[in-house]
Design a protein around this nucleic acid. Structure first.
Lengths: 345, 345
DNA sequence: GTTTGCATGTCCGACACTGTCATTCTGTGC
DNA sequence: GCACAGAATGACAGTGTCGGACATGCAAAC
């Protein structure tokens, strides 16, 4: 089923069909109707490959995600849910506009990120690219996309630099979480940071530090860190618990690490929230099932990726590219893992 | 960067470059090396669009997944993790062979599945299609793929019919779970089935029934069902708990429903596993974090999707299509949610 | 010196579509 | 009824790649 068949069926030229398909002006309504009838009857769908050859859109948007090297690696880390959420937000929005989202998994630690990315772009010729942490701050990737003159959106704690910035304000999110604990009366608030290769790790620590400073509290010795994995969260929690004066509250940089902290707390006889308050980051579905359900900072990943796709499509349609960063608000959802500190604290 | 640039750079004809790119025979090693050097230096990557136009592969594999209509729907169901796992297994394997996996979300309840699918195929012209439940048994989809002469793999409890069948033996899995409970001494074993539109729901029930019959136990009134959501699992558990003689063990058809059962058990003062044993299906990472960690039937989804991709690529390379279904073994992982029934039971 | 066979080059058409520009229609005003 | 402007439509070339037909070059085998 090609455009030729439709043209023959409707008794018009190829061009006219092409115009109808692409909703261009300059086709009389009754003619458009006749052509559309043929398209529907024959079940014609234009080939993206051929469209792209002819110099038009590819109707493909590339989403760059971090890659685990193997299934076993992913198992060990117990999944991230990020891809799932990216897909949901991004794909549904793409589908609404006749686009498709292609997820490209790129290894942050790879020596030839550039080659991988260039390969994907040359092969697929996407109309736009969405960058998620930790890629959204990678200068190699950004330079390459600029050189190729490809529209891109960067999702993360990114307020400056090229491309459309979709700001998930990690510093502010950490500050809100900290302030909530301060308001409850906590004075020793521990923080488990994420890995350094994610810019957001730094921002979250900054927000925590700032809120602590504002409240006149010391941060010394209260910072631990992990790599977002369950095991690393457990190790970090162990460090904090082992302090001469352990924290009465802990903020974990993602759900896995906070859950690990909850587990270790339970195993070492600490009651949550009576003895220890916990706040998590990300709010993937898991933590609602924890006991107690965890108070968390909601990072609206699905919404952010949906927004990113919208921005790219709007840009393709000729809308001006917003120059200021667009903020995606993080919110604190209070559940049952936070309470006043124990009387002695 | 087109094939022309490479040919000029290496001082050879277009054909020779094409032969090297496609690893065809009839090129002397030293010549191939020279051409490859040019390709690497110029960073040339063949355009999939143009390759496809020339009648060759598209190097795209389509994975058909079930679609939630909106982000809110997905939130309500608290995610499935399926897509994540499909991606991991399928994508990593695709990447190894220079293919790409494109996830297409199709709504089971849509009236025009055929049109949606036809559109995706015509637009992308994938080299192969992977069907997951509930699409893998849909005759509309299967007929369409056969008519289009597209290679496809069906993942699920599917032993007959066209296409390569990747059999996840749900009946056997349910039987193993039931037998484990019978061996522990349980006699009242409840089962929470999945929604009817998933073929696997029926198979799992069959396996449970068969194992119960073999053990000389009655199934009457011990079957409840849900739609895989947390809420429906809770409702099903409530029904089973309300029986005159409630079960001492329950098998849930997926992790969400089993977790809901665990929650309700806790809330109604039932200890797991002392008063009630639980076995879950799927073994997504969530249930390892539950308290107690749930005994579960491991459905190796990531491995199955990896296998599916391998089968498609092997088929494209000319390997004969296996005619018998290929079994992906499910295994019981015993954790801490199963024990002997209470003495009175 | 001829034959054989492989390696390479040349040339052209096919693929499905779009963009440009030329041509044909349409309706309007006289 | 005719000229004319402007819109509607068509003809044609170009896009990057592959495949086929065929010619040529070059080395080894006879």
């Amino acid at each position: 089923m090609t455009i030729k068949h439709v043209a023959a069926d409707a008794g018009v030229s190829l061009q006219t069909v092409s115009r109808v398909v692409n909703k261009e002006t300059g086709v009389r309504p009754q003619m458009a109707e006749r052509v559309q009838a043929s398209i529907d009857r024959l079940g014609y769908v234009p080939s993206i490959a051929a469209q792209r050859m002819g110099g038009s859109r590819s109707y493909l948007i590339l989403a760059l995600n971090d890659r685990e090297r193997t299934i076993a690696d992913w198992r060990a880390r117990q999944g991230t849910d990020w891809v799932d959420q990216m897909l949901l937000g991004g794909m549904l929005t793409c589908a609404e506009h006749g686009y498709r989202l292609i997820v490209e998994l790129v290894d942050t630690h790879s020596d030839h990120i550039e080659r991988e990315l260039l390969g994907a772009i040359a092969a697929l010729q996407p109309d736009g690219v969405i960058l998620t942490p930790p890629h959204s701050g990678n200068p190699l990737i950004i330079d390459l996309l600029e050189a190729q003159d490809i529209r891109f959106v960067r999702i993360g704690s990114i307020s400056e630099g090229p491309g459309v910035r979709l700001m998930m304000d990690d510093a502010r999110a950490a500050r809100i979480a900290t302030e909530h604990l301060v308001a409850l009366g906590h004075r020793r608030i521990g923080f488990i940071a994420g890995p350094a290769e994610y810019e957001l790790s730094g921002w979250r620590v900054d927000g925590w530090r700032a809120a602590m400073a504002d409240a006149g509290l010391a941060c010394t010795d209260l910072l631990a860190s992990g790599d977002f994995s369950h095991a690393s969260g457990r190790a970090a929690a162990r460090t904090l618990f082992a302090l001469p004066e352990p924290p009465t509250a802990i903020i974990g940089s993602n759900d896995q690490m906070t859950l690990a902290t909850l587990e270790l707390a339970r195993e070492t006889g600490r009651r949550v929230p009576e003895d220890l308050s916990l706040i998590s980051f990300d709010d993937t579905p898991i933590i609602r099932l924890a006991h107690p359900p965890l108070t968390a900072i909601v990072q609206p990943i699905a919404e952010a990726s949906a927004r990113a796709v919208s921005l790219i499509i709007a840009g393709l349609a000729g809308d001006p590219t917003p120059d200021a960063p667009i903020t995606v608000a993080a919110e604190l959802t209070v559940r049952r893992s936070t309470a006043r500190p124990p009387a002695s604290g």
